[in-house]
Write a protein that binds this DNA or RNA. Structure first.
Lengths: 348, 348
DNA sequence: CGCTTTGAGAAAAACGTTTTTTTGATTTTA
DNA sequence: TAAAATCAAAAAAACGTTTTTCTCAAAGCG
């Protein structure tokens, strides 16, 4: 199967130069005469020589690899982020190593250790345990240990000290959602939120209450429902709960698209429809919003831009640059078909 | 930021043994006395020492890394495969490196080169260019070059000689789909297929014609529609075309779930409904089938089992074992709510 | 014209492991 | 009881690069 590996020395020998000259040529180092450069390149081409990245990494102390932890790449939110980051990393000359943790602390810890062994030069944490507050002790320790050895970039959450945080503007996203629904005439607005212990939930919740207050709208206690799972199951049950109230809301904001779609299924099962009976808003604007009828209005970040920021932060931190002041990534409202205008007389 | 790296020699020194003994201890090599083993482990624990995987790989000529190429991990079919493979690989002591190629030959080639530089020990090709026939010349050459250096496992397609192929039983899947619809009384069955040049399309097409023939059912030429893109756009337009026929089909089989969902949207837009007016079947049984109403009947493989087979093939090939005879992965019909029984009097 | 600078490139050291070889002590065997 | 065999572990070589150091020749300078 495997033919004899050809090394930089073999190239050097055939080109009648030293190994270091070959190394320099491959690195586009300036101080090598065109004539020799040519001679080397010819041999490199002839054998299709490609330097061993392991040796390169070991010798130069640069693996050119960035690790990424996410709960589940089957979730379109994370796959979009990973996909965008992979491209950004490739463009920057880095490789991105993705690991699915299923939000299990033991897995996250195991993968962090593995990535450190593999000499990852930076670590990007997406969701998962990173979103929790308070953090499991052993997890926090491991992140701390990572942060001591390499720059840790946290996408959204800030698990421990010494991590670069690239926060999403959940607060403003929620503000936009509430204002949009209010502008359509809704006053009875509900929020299907995730687990309270999650950072994102807390920010959105705060924004929900404060924006409602600013609009002089009353928040019914029963309209704020905690959803146990972030998927359509959770949304389904949460919505069922809302619809069983004596006076249900007219609009529902869900913590993410999956939950919103679950809510929509509940609405359909009860014989109601969107947006006729309930207006619906999701978060993340995944392509799922285009798969349901009517298309789901949703808020999201610009995935490409976010990826560039994440990878940019990682790469500049690797090069030892000072961390830039935190820039918060804005969310944009993507208005589609799941919300309708409601008139005062319809109320009650 | 980075504290002084601690090596196997530092451990050896503090434990008063040689570096090779430390190496043996970490490898659970038998021939080292319990007393010394203990002493070494104590120091390893104390410093939380973790051996450098780059050095390990270079020295042992085993990177313990498997590369994987897929067109787009945002596609739930591929994310499911990757996720399952990552777990299987981790369990087998390997790391899985995923690269998105967007089915662009140049990207696939670039990534193959990169993976070879990184000393990947095996390469798994999922979809993308691998599904095409005929293959772009330069692509085929690169795969050939890979196959010369490491075992290449192809998930479905067989791009070139010397690749292990783990084929999916597309033929039987289509057979099941057609038989199921026929058993519900359908005779006017359509097939929204992908590009003709793709292997999968060809197999499904053959199965479609042959099964229809076996059932003595006529295939209307206009019922077999080529869809340009594998997404809901494609399905939408294909279905529109089918509905504009003077005598439209009563059941539609789509090449995958996305396409089927696009078809469903077209059906809804025309004021029809599923399964009342059209029965619908997709392929891959992604979680998308549970997000639409009614839940989409679909055919799929067992992702976990498929992943075990793929990784198993890669790992055993790495260890130099003889390739096992090709086992074809079966597809299972997941009956949900998108097909209904049709009665002879309804016909026409 | 002899001296220091400069620059190209060879040689050697380093990176942190595994693997092979060697060593020396202990046990077995004749 | 001396020679052979076994064993644990130290020492050394190897993995394939980059990086540092060294060498030598040509160029610059007073």
């Amino acid at each position: 199967m495997t033919q004899k590996k050809i090394t930089i020395y073999d190239i050097a020998k055939e080109a009648q130069v030293s190994a270091s000259t070959v190394s320099r040529v491959l690195d586009n180092h300036p101080s090598v005469k065109p004539e020799k450069r040519e001679r080397v390149m010819k041999v490199v081409k002839k054998y299709q020589f490609r330097p061993n990245a392991l040796a390169k990494g070991l010798s130069s102390a640069h693996s050119r690899m960035i690790g990424m932890l996410c709960p589940d790449v089957c979730n379109p939110f994370f796959s979009s982020i990973f996909s965008a980051c992979e491209q950004a990393a490739f463009a920057a000359g880095y490789t991105l190593m993705l690991n699915n943790t299923f939000a299990q602390p033991e897995k996250e810890i195991a993968y962090m250790h593995k990535l450190m062994e593999q000499q990852a030069e930076s670590l990007i944490l997406c969701g998962g345990v990173a979103d929790w507050r308070p953090l499991p002790e052993e997890y926090a320790n491991t992140v701390r240990q990572c942060a001591q050895n390499l720059p840790v970039v946290s996408a959204g959450a800030l698990p421990v000290e010494r991590c670069y945080q690239i926060p999403l503007d959940h607060y403003d996203g929620m503000r936009q959602a509430v204002n949009y629904l209010a502008s359509l005439g809704h006053t009875r607005i509900a929020f299907l939120h995730g687990l309270r212990c999650i950072l994102q939930t807390q920010e959105k919740m705060r924004a929900f209450y404060e924006t409602m207050a600013a609009l002089k709208l009353h928040v019914h206690k029963e309209y704020v429902v905690e959803v146990m799972t972030f998927d359509e199951q959770g949304g389904y049950h949460g919505m069922m709960q809302l619809m069983s109230l004596p006076k249900p809301p007219t609009a529902v904001i869900a913590i993410n698209d999956m939950t919103a779609i679950g809510a929509q299924q509940a609405i359909l099962h009860k014989g109601y429809s969107v947006p006729r009976d309930f207006s619906l808003i999701g978060f993340d604007n995944t392509y799922l919003t285009y798969l349901v009828q009517p298309h789901l209005t949703s808020l999201s970040l610009d995935y490409q831009a976010y990826a560039r920021t994440l990878i940019g932060a990682a790469v500049s931190a690797i090069s030892g640059e000072q961390p830039k002041p935190l820039e918060v990534i804005p969310l944009t409202l993507h208005v589609k078909e799941s919300c309708r205008r409601i008139f005062p007389l319809e109320e009650k």
